[in-house]
């Protein structure tokens, strides 16, 4: 809980990325990261938090996302306008390189930001959708490690899905 001496002042946290870059964020943004919200609720959040699995490039994006979502939700606009705004923002936000998308997804999972995790999963899924097996292998750089027998078995297993 916030200390009684700083009631009027906005509480800030310093988040340190894997590569040592420090970001200053307000509490309203920090709590969107479920891992930090839990620390705060458990009263064990220190003002300086190291995030070992996230690079500065990705953390900057994550903070941009959380900041926009926090501001839109507390901005006093009507729910439908806020929803529209977030939708537009999310769409633009997902307009990034596929590798960044993968990093974002992984970070959202690690930092436990449900909405960003679902958004990145949906976007990644839309990239995979309607692709052939060969296209998926190429896209994700997956090597075919099936034996001839296994490949036959897996084709048979899923023959129904292609009908």
């Amino acid at each position: 809980m916030s200390s009684s001496t700083e009631l009027t002042e906005k509480k800030v946290f310093l988040l340190k990325s894997l590569d040592g870059v420090i970001f200053e964020v307000e509490e309203s943004v920090a709590v969107q990261l479920e891992v930090i919200r839990e620390l705060i609720e458990g009263d064990c959040a220190r003002p300086f938090i190291s995030l070992y699995n996230v690079t500065s490039e990705i953390l900057a994006l994550v903070i941009e996302y959380c900041k926009h979502h926090a501001e839109t939700c507390s901005g006093g606009t009507s729910a439908t306008i806020a929803d529209e705004d977030l939708k537009t923002f999310d769409n633009e936000f997902m307009n990034v390189d596929e590798n960044i998308l993968l990093e974002l997804c992984s970070a959202a999972d690690y930092l436990d930001i449900k909405s960003l995790f679902e958004l990145t999963c949906r976007t990644l899924a839309s990239l995979i959708k309607d692709r052939t097996i060969i296209e998926v292998r190429k896209m994700f750089n997956v090597e075919n490690d099936f034996s001839v027998v296994e490949e036959k078995a897996v084709r048979k297993e899923f023959a129904w899905a292609f009908k």
Binding site: I128, R131, I133, V136, E150, F158
Partner: peptide
């Protein structure tokens, strides 16, 4: 399921 099947068929 179709997309899952495609993924399933890529690797072990």
């Amino acid at each position: 399921y179709r997309d899952r099947a495609s993924l399933s068929s890529t690797c072990r």
